[in-house]
C-alpha cells in the first residue's frame, strides 16, 4: 500500500496548491503586514483544509477502479486497519509536509514568531484528523464518477471543529495566552477520529462496493 502511494506523482500537488493559493492571498488583500498577520492563522488553516480535502478524492479511487479495494474487503482481517493505514499514508503525503512547510509560509505572511511552534503542532495534529475524517467522505463517494463537489459538501461540516481549535490555538499563541488546552482538544479529536473514522469509512467502503 505504501508502495502504491509512493509511485504517485500527485503527492506534490496538494502541497503546491497550498503554497500557490497562499501566495495569491497577499495579491488579493494587499501587502500590508498587519492585515496579513491578522489573517495568517486562519488562511493557513483554511488552505491546509482545502489541500487535504482535494487530495482525498483519490484516496480509495485507484484501488476501487482496479479491484484491489474489493480484494481488501474480502480479506478475513477487518477493513479498519487497511483504512487506518491508508489515512496514515495520506497524512504522511499531505498533512505532514504541510505542517513542516508551515513556518516558511508563516514567515511569508508575517505571522508573529510566537505563533510558529503552535502553528506547526496544531497542523501536525489537525491534519491527521482531517485525513481520517475525510476518509469517510472518500469512502462514501468512491463509486461515484464525479465526486469532487459532493465530497466537499459531505466533509466540510465535519471539519469544522478541527478548524476552530486549530486556528484558536494559533490565535491564542499569538496573543500570548496559553494554548495547551486547544492543542489537547486537537489531540483528543485526533484520538476520537482514529478510533471511529476508520470504522465508519470501512462500513462506507462495503456499502460503496455493493454497487
Amino acid at each position: 500500500m505504501l508502495l502504491a502511494l509512493r509511485k504517485r506523482a500527485d503527492i506534490a500537488n496538494p502541497l503546491l496548491f497550498f503554497v500557490t493559493v497562499l501566495a495569491l492571498l497577499p495579491l488579493g488583500v494587499g501587502p500590508e503586514p498587519d492585515l496579513l498577520a491578522k489573517m495568517a492563522p486562519g488562511m493557513i488553516w483554511v488552505m491546509a483544509l482545502l489541500a487535504t480535502m482535494l487530495s482525498q478524492e483519490s484516496l480509495f479511487r485507484g484501488d476501487f477502479e482496479d479491484g484491489t479495494l474489493e480484494q481488501l474487503a474480502l480479506l478475513p482481517q477487518p477493513l479498519y486497519f487497511a483504512v487506518l493505514a491508508k489515512s496514515l499514508v495520506h497524512w504522511i503525503a499531505t498533512g505532514l509536509p504541510l505542517a513542516l512547510l508551515s513556518p516558511l509560509l508563516a514567515l511569508m505572511l508575517n505571522l508573529p514568531t510566537e505563533g510558529y511552534f503552535c502553528l506547526f503542532v496544531s497542523l501536525f495534529l489537525g491534519t491527521a484528523s482531517l485525513s481520517l475524517i475525510g476518509a469517510i467522505g472518500a469512502a462514501l463517494t468512491v463509486a461515484l464518477r464525479r465526486p469532487g463537489l459532493l465530497l466537499a459538501l459531505i466533509v466540510m461540516p465535519l471539519y469544522v471543529p478541527v478548524l476552530i481549535f486549530g486556528t484558536g490555538a494559533v490565535q491564542a499563541a499569538i496573543d500570548g495566552y496559553a494554548y495547551s488546552a486547544q492543542l489537547a482538544i486537537l489531540a483528543a479529536l485526533l484520538a476520537a477520529a482514529a478510533a471511529l473514522a476508520p470504522l465508519a469509512a470501512a462500513g462506507a467502503i462495503r456499502i460503496s462496493l455493493d454497487n
Partner: peptide
C-alpha cells in the same frame, strides 16, 4: 444538504439508502 446530495448522487437506491444513513450517523 450533504445527506440529500449523497442520496441523490448514488444511482442505486439501496446503496444510496445505506450510504446516506451512514453519513447521517457520522453527522
Amino acid at each position: 444538504i450533504g445527506v440529500m446530495a449523497l442520496s441523490q448522487a448514488v444511482s442505486r437506491e439501496q446503496v444510496a439508502d445505506k450510504a446516506s444513513a451512514l453519513l447521517a450517523l457520522v453527522g
